[in-house]
Design a binder for these strands. Sequence first.
DNA 1: AACCAATGGTTCAAATAATGAACCGATCAA
DNA 2: TTGATCGGTTCATTATTTGAACCATTGGTT
Lengths: 269, 269
Amino acid sequence: MSSAVKTLHLLSFFSATTPEIGLSALCRLAKRDKATTHRHLQALEEAGFVEQNPLTRQYRLGPALLQLAQTREQTVPRKESAIPVLKDLAEKTGETTHASVLSGTTVFALASYESAQHSTRVVIDLDKFPLHATASGLSILAFGPGDLFEIAANNLETFTSHTVNSKASLEEAVQSVRDTGFGRTIQSFEDEVSSLAAPVFDETGNLAGAVSVACVATRFSPELERKCQEHLITASRDLTRGWGGAVPDPIEAIWAATLNNSKALDSTS
Amino acid sequence: MSSAVKTLHLLSFFSATTPEIGLSALCRLAKRDKATTHRHLQALEEAGFVEQNPLTRQYRLGPALLQLAQTREQTVPRKESAIPVLKDLAEKTGETTHASVLSGTTVFALASYESAQHSTRVVIDLDKFPLHATASGLSILAFGPGDLFEIAANNLETFTSHTVNSKASLEEAVQSVRDTGFGRTIQSFEDEVSSLAAPVFDETGNLAGAVSVACVATRFSPELERKCQEHLITASRDLTRGWGGAVPDPIEAIWAATLNNSKALDSTS
DNA sequence: AACCAATGGTTCAAATAATGAACCGATCAA
DNA sequence: TTGATCGGTTCATTATTTGAACCATTGGTT
């Protein structure tokens, strides 16, 4: 691992809930030497990626990030184009929606939208997503680059009693996504949340990310699932179009088959 | 210079006008070896700070920046608090306004606001600011940490025929800012722009950045300058308050004296 | 088809920079 | 005073970074 990556990794410990971190605390979090961590922080400070709170001497994220993010958003305005789609999806399903993008082997949360329809709703913390425990992650494993599976399988952190905890069960879950076209997790990341997700594609027809609906688990009925599936399809199409691509025909075919099946089930019940 | 800093420096070549850069082009820009640059880009890609356009193989800024910037803004919402102040300043002066923050030895643009009052107006490119050629930079040199002067003096890039080009004339310009409380540049960064700026302070009473008005040079009359000075004072107070601090008394005294002087000049003319 | 000049990407010995245990001074609480 | 933090620094050892030369591919020109 290059020293630059190690340095940048320090940034990932900052979050909305932990906005300022002292040198010693960061050493413990990153499990690295104090001298090294200090030099890394100085490098980040020189580049404007962190700054020191002059009062507490603690470190926090720096202003250079704002400029770079602004440039990124001007350049590749995926977030901007995603928001209206997420809003629409949230209003139609009455649940919280969000979109994420795959970059390298990491899933980044892009944006989320909370439906105002219910007073209980899922609030999504825009952090990195575990591939094996979220509906978005499973969608990405199913339709994204093949080398992701190994990485996910070697990193099966357990979040709830429903989290998949073996390579075999992960394989099974991914296969089910390939069969249905939808990622699906029942209380596997957080106990109160069940999610459905669909893959999103870019201008090359490769997987670019995922869009998902996170439902409060007690509301997650077959009817709601059907509704989510329908609207996820249009949301995925819209996002894919917004990012310059088109949903590949095989995916469309799988979705159509899944919807037909659940319609058949409905009518027999 | 640490390799992490060199790596991060690559990011600064991306801008709204140059959103995607190929490996070779980036080597030329950064004046660095191809193998090194490639390894640096891989490190940045691993961290999500850049990604490769799958079609052109060119690199562009990555999605990790969006998340970090969001955290930064949630945490230290300077930009958010600055925008209404800049808007007000722009409306009262009829010119383009902007705010910048000092981090380490670099001035970062935070936000700008264009007045809709005139059809010709200054459009500010949110890039890094040269300390010696902008009103904001001079304000920061005058009231910021002392070690900045040497850095600025060793980096006197010439932009127009009015740009200061010697250590002595820079010293003179900075002294004038200390005397008046306002940074002032007449067509020194771009030929059509004259600017006035005032320092902004943080919760420790140290300089945190600057706020400025960028006027179309042909409109820059003594009357407009007076108006800008008045409103810059209130803008600096507002921003400083928004960032948890208060404008130091000596600065307030200098401003009061400057305003008195120009009032006296007005009445004699 | 052959050629040339780009491009992105890789190799490996030499050179340089990263590393971390031990250390320093400051602050705070007991 | 003592002891336990904190942020920060030192320096010999070690491991990573470095870059000239190289390869493979692409796209335009003769």
